[in-house]
Amino acid sequence: MIEVRELTKHYGARIAVDSLDFTVKPGIVTGFLGPNGAGKSTTMRLILGLDRPTRGTATVNGMHYRDLVAPLHEVGALLEARAVHTGRSGFNHLLALAQTHGIPRWRVSEVIELVGLESVARKRVGSFSLGMGQRLGVAAALLGDPATVVLDEPANGLDPEGIRWIRNLLRSLAAEGRTVFLSSHLMSEMEQTADHLIVIGRGRLIADTTVADFVARASSGAPVRVRSPQPEALMTAIGRGGGRSEPIDDGALQVYGLSSEQIGELAAAQQIVLHELTPLQVSLEDAFMSITKDTVEYQQTLGDGRVPVSLVAKSEPTQ
């Protein structure tokens, strides 16, 4: 359980985190979402006792991180920035961390096996690929078999197989009753991994909700796709019913302002045949974009700054 109350961090005049309040509960995967510069990494560093908050508190199981007597057993963390001496081997890095808690050597070998680094564990970390570095970071996080896991952008640098691996790992950790808190800017990844979402922009809380709710909230006002052999009659009926329709390339209509139920009833009343009636959902990606569009600190990172609302369930980010 992670509890964040009124958490605020100023770096000089810049406000990185602004009165954040949220709770990360055990047993589920909680995603931490926000554009670049939103304050995700800072929030995690505050939780982990690396930075001191300007105001407010962040506690893990009711304690400040700095007061934990056995922190690696309580919280396992993977930071976005690398936190490994490049001149040491992966094994010795983990061994040095383990020794601070009297964690036995066999546990070091065990986590190396768990993350699949057996073949390179004796090599210098400086020779590791980004993906191997991430796996080493995950091994360090799991070293103390912690009840809470905090991971900043764990999918960074992982190949598709690695991404699937980390997703399954996180889900199984949550299923064991642990608290799993991960940040990502990969919204599609979050959609498949997280149960709950905490969304921030410019250091402020934007949403604290389930993934399904978050998508639904952004989907309100999303159009309905309708296909009919009588498009003219249908467009007229929709117009009278208070909706607006646009023909699209494949002959279907995109209808705004009416729900699929309303469209179905209008068509039935006019005896218009429908071949398709599909409420379009926005993807988490689009939901995120549309909800955070005012809070993106660096607009140019979105290309022209226009918020893309491509109305396909699994769209890639558009330019």
Partner: peptide, 21 residues
């Protein structure tokens, strides 16, 4: 995948762990 975590009671070792000295 994780044989250790599969055979473990959920969230067992947290408080029982060895402290930093």
């Amino acid at each position: 995948m994780s044989t250790t975590s599969a055979t473990r009671a959920p969230v067992a070792s947290g408080a029982a762990g060895q402290r930093v000295t």
